[in-house]
Simulated assay, not measured.
Amino acid sequence: MARYSVYRALSKEKNTKKQEDIISRLGLQTAEINIDDKLLLEIITELSNKLPEKCRLVFQYNKLQDRSLADVAEQLNISQKTAEGHLTKALKVIRANMGDMMTFFL
């Protein structure tokens, strides 16, 4: 009985160490992800600032501030289809430039 109690204690200690290692790795990965996310958001914001005014506003309100396209169109006094067109144009420009920026960073 004593032998099995020792086995259980050693097993429990081993599992605790594994869990601590996993938690410490996740903490490091989370910090790296946060830095990457901030850098990516900064790049996207910089690229969106180069867009024409209406495209920039529609993109920033819709994608960066999570507002619906209908709300954005109403606030800017444009039709929803026009807002969709501006958003489509903005996304095309940003995607094209993101490819260039990613090539530059890599």
Rank of each mutant, 00 (worst) to 15 (best):
T16H: 10
K50R: 12
L39R: 12
D37V: 13
E20I: 05
M102V: 15
L51H: 07
I33E: 04
E74M: 07
K81E: 09
V58R: 00
A70N: 13
I33K: 13
E46P: 07
T45L: 09
L47Q: 00
V72W: 05
Q29A: 15
E84F: 02
R3I: 15
L39K: 12
F105M: 14
E13Y: 10
I33L: 15
G27H: 10
N77L: 11
L69T: 03
L69F: 05
L91G: 00
M98Y: 00
N77T: 09
S79L: 04
C55E: 00
L28E: 11
T30D: 04
L69I: 14
S79E: 11
A73C: 14
R25V: 04
L26P: 01
N62F: 01
I78F: 02
K17T: 09
L76H: 03
I44A: 04
C55G: 06
A90S: 12
T45G: 08
I43Q: 08
K18F: 02
Q75M: 13
N15I: 05
T82V: 07
K89C: 02
V58P: 00
D36Q: 14
I23Q: 03
S68H: 11
V6C: 12
N34S: 12
S68A: 05
K63P: 06
D100Y: 04
A83M: 06
L76E: 00
R67V: 08
D37F: 03
R8W: 03
K18L: 10
K50V: 04
N15E: 15
I22E: 10
L47I: 08
N49W: 04
A90R: 00
A70I: 10
E42I: 05
A31D: 09
G27P: 01
T82N: 03
S11T: 07
K17P: 03
I23S: 03
G27N: 13
T16D: 14
M102K: 09
S79H: 06
V72G: 01
E74V: 06
L64N: 03
I44R: 02
S24Y: 01
G99H: 08
R67M: 15
R67A: 02
E84A: 09
L10D: 07
K81F: 12
S11A: 11
T16E: 11
Q29N: 06
E46F: 09
E74P: 00
N77V: 03
I94N: 02
T45E: 13
N15Y: 05
K18Y: 00
S24H: 08
M102Q: 11
S5D: 07
E20K: 12
E13S: 12
T30S: 10
R95W: 08
R56I: 02
Q80M: 12
K14G: 01
L106N: 15
K14W: 04
Y61S: 09
E32D: 14
